[in-house]
Design a protein around this nucleic acid. Structure first.
Lengths: 153, 153
DNA sequence: GTGCCTGCAAAAAATTTGCAACACG
DNA sequence: CGTGTTGCAAATTTTTTGCAGGCAC
């Protein structure tokens, strides 16, 4: 493992007084290489061949720690559990409410103001998330129209 | 129950070819009257006195149906489960990642373009959600700084 | 009446926790 | 070597499902 940011991750962990363990580097690398917005279980399954002793609960704990550090992003799909994104440059996500797949949306395609620390008095904003929720092309081609006109949710 | 929109809700259900049952009206009314962004269980607990036979699974099913109709909004907090909002005028949400409380943010305070059906080719957008995630005033006053500088998540 | 809905209980899914053994620094 | 981490299993939390009876239309 020596994806573009191994040392950067180690430094980031150290700065947070956390140890740079093999599990953490493996999980970070898996996220770095995936563009599928994997769940904790996805990551676990990806890594279990190369790391047979890795446990699912370690994956959960590690993802939590990294999200708290700001090293990765969490994506709430509203379908099933949380998903994770190792690519933290500003961008948005489009989530299919039928199949749960998550697509990236360029920030430049839908720019928003990221420096608005004062939206709510005394609320310390750590991130602004924009989700486009709807039906993806694949699902839309599979089924007919829903009974009610799409809106909300 | 005759909050401002009982008949409107019945019509909305009918339009979706759904039956207007007492449970559905009660749940809708509870959402209409709450500004706490309740969870399914919150709603269940609110209604159980007046509706002793109401079941939690009915609450889940009803909320799901209403979200699909676009009659209510779902809020993914990333902490615990889904939360619901009966007030569907355009607005955003700020979520405290420590206590899970959800605050409303005026749309005018942070306007975004809601008519961008073309962000992703062939993706049918049903809603655009903007979440501000961070630490609310109450939680911030309770604890000192975290070990790492806030960012991401 | 007919078929959609509900309630109940049980199952599934998603995540957290306690604790002894282990390894990073 | 001491303390943060891990792995394992069990516990929680959140949501879904199957099915018989009930109610809206």
């Amino acid at each position: 493992m020596d994806s573009r940011g191994e040392q950067k991750i180690i430094d980031q962990l150290r700065r947070s007084r956390l140890r740079a363990t093999g599990q953490r580097l493996a999980i970070m690398q898996a996220l770095d290489e995936s563009f599928e917005h994997p769940s904790a279980e996805d990551i676990f399954n990806t890594l279990r061949k190369a790391h047979p002793t890795l446990s699912l609960s370690t994956v959960y704990k590690t993802l939590q720690v990294m999200a708290e550090m700001g090293a990765i992003l969490t994506i709430e799909t509203g379908i099933g559990g949380l998903r994770y994104d190792g690519h933290i440059h500003p961008h948005h996500h489009a989530i299919c409410i039928r199949c749960g797949k998550v697509y990236d949306v360029d920030f430049d395609q839908y720019p928003v103001d990221l420096n608005r620390a004062d939206i709510i008095p005394n609320f310390k904003i750590r991130s602004i998330k924009v989700y486009f929720s709807g039906i993806c092309a694949v699902c839309d081609s599979l089924k007919g129209k829903p009974s009610a006109p799409p809106a909300g949710d």
